[in-house]
Design a protein around this nucleic acid. Sequence first.
DNA 1: AAAAGCAATGTAACCGGTTACATTAAGGTT
DNA 2: AACCTTAATGTAACCGGTTACATTGCTTTT
Lengths: 332, 332
Amino acid sequence: MTNIRKVAELAGVSVATVSRALKSPDIVSPVTREKVLKAVDQAGYKPNLMAVQFRSQRTYNLVVLVPTIANTFFARVISGIQEAAQERGYGVLLCNTLGNEAMETQYASLVSTRQADGVVQLRAFNPFSDNAFPAGAALPMINACEVLDDAPCPTVKLDNRAAAREVTEHLIALGHRRIGMIKGPRRSPLTRDRQLGYQDALSAAGIALDERLLCPGDFTPLAGYQAAETLIALTERPTAIFCESDEMAIGAMSRIKESGLSVPKDISVAGFDDIAFASYTDPPLTTIAQPAEAFGREAVAMLIDVLEGQKVENLVMPYTLLTRASTAPCQL
Amino acid sequence: MTNIRKVAELAGVSVATVSRALKSPDIVSPVTREKVLKAVDQAGYKPNLMAVQFRSQRTYNLVVLVPTIANTFFARVISGIQEAAQERGYGVLLCNTLGNEAMETQYASLVSTRQADGVVQLRAFNPFSDNAFPAGAALPMINACEVLDDAPCPTVKLDNRAAAREVTEHLIALGHRRIGMIKGPRRSPLTRDRQLGYQDALSAAGIALDERLLCPGDFTPLAGYQAAETLIALTERPTAIFCESDEMAIGAMSRIKESGLSVPKDISVAGFDDIAFASYTDPPLTTIAQPAEAFGREAVAMLIDVLEGQKVENLVMPYTLLTRASTAPCQL
DNA sequence: AAAAGCAATGTAACCGGTTACATTAAGGTT
DNA sequence: AACCTTAATGTAACCGGTTACATTGCTTTT
């Protein structure tokens, strides 16, 4: 393999001069620079980035911890991450953690073993919290999308409470009083905030909370399907269902129609995320649009700022309620 | 940062002994090994993997070139890749190339600059074909899913022609004679093979090929939506449509219903891939199930075998026709 | 003309592991 | 007791860049 010494020999200069000619062209004479560049070309020289990284102790890689790449919302976030990282010369080591905390911790340790410079965490879990990491060490991390309450790092999030409130208010404005909710995983702050927003809207409208209308889920279509089954079976079934993800909403709609009920005539359905399929469902899905790609881009921008020693501030991203045909006035 | 020398000092041995105690425990005495391990623990020592990699000239990273991560079929393939890579101690550098060839070539060059050991290419394009790479150099690569005809590397693929033929035969068996096809990108071998399979079935049944029934697409729901529009507008519209991806099938179904037509009563729709949503559409989608995760796992297994100097053979993966409610007997 | 300043380049230490080779000590053989 | 073998450990070169410091030669200053 051609290395810097070969090039130096070919150009008749020292290795230091070659290095300088490539990295700080302005401090070598034009004549020498020419010679070096010609030698580089002739030898087909490409710097061994492993050596560069080793020397500079920077990998220019970022670890992204994603709960599941199969969720199309995260796919969009990752696209944004990828794009922003590439623009700034960073690579992305993607880690599909499947919600497995041990795996998250393991992947996060890529930073402490110098395989990556920092971490973007898309889930409310601090992979550095166990004792595998030196307590004082500042491990560059950004927590985005699902954010810890006491995040030990900068965060990028949505005002989930306000967004959930807005969806619920939309349903109430359509005359619905029995509104089911298909939630996310139990211990997620995201789920808690969205439920708070749901409750905010209910109490503002003077509607009592009925615990039976709350179903747990895990953001997958299957979970939505099963939760809808439960809700439909209630003696007083809801006339509207708010799902914490579009994927669950799709599953729920499937189950509702299977029962011979109609969306939105019998039951209105609202989702969250605005995934690509949301406008192709039958009927098209009312949902909260999140700027998924922007989440990714902003998280990366912040992480790189941290790595470069700049100060960063927490970010709250905007959302929009998209009213489509899956929600309609209550028929009762 | 604690390095191997600190540990050596702490344990009262040489750095070589520390290295050996960790990498080949059997060649140091039990007593010394104990001392070293205790020192490692005490110092909180973790080897600097950048140094290890630099020394061994192996990164234990694989580059994965994926056309678009937003397609849920690829999301499944990537899950498989991730899993297999992790099991064998490799990291995955995911590159969302968006079909941009310059970007593919750029990412592939991570291998020549020693940022990664090999490439898994999920698209029919040889990123090493331009002159940016030394001609003779053996750049470890596996081509999976969409495979080049003259791939310069081992491949993992489906018998797309046979699968497409099987779907088409299924439609013909239901009595359909005018069968539309929503295709993939023009120059893709995948699209060509699937069209050949479609034609095989037609000619076996004595049905003439009608070019107007062939619409180009790009695997997105929007493309399916638009292509369906074209097909519906034909004076003699098809009674069945075979889509080269489930995502396009979902878009097509949406457009068909928008026209007041019913699936499958007026038009049967079949897809390809069996993405997670395929069983939650209304009606559930008849499709070809591909072992997406297995594609990823096999590709990684093959790539690592190549990296380890073993011989590998091309692989053809199995498929299954899943008959669901979106296809029904022809009503004409 | 001697001193000082500066631009251009060379020399070699350094990053943190791995490993070929050298050295030492202990045990076994004749 | 002299010699050989083997296990255990130490020494130092090495991977391929980067960069602090040294050196050279030329120009400017007084």
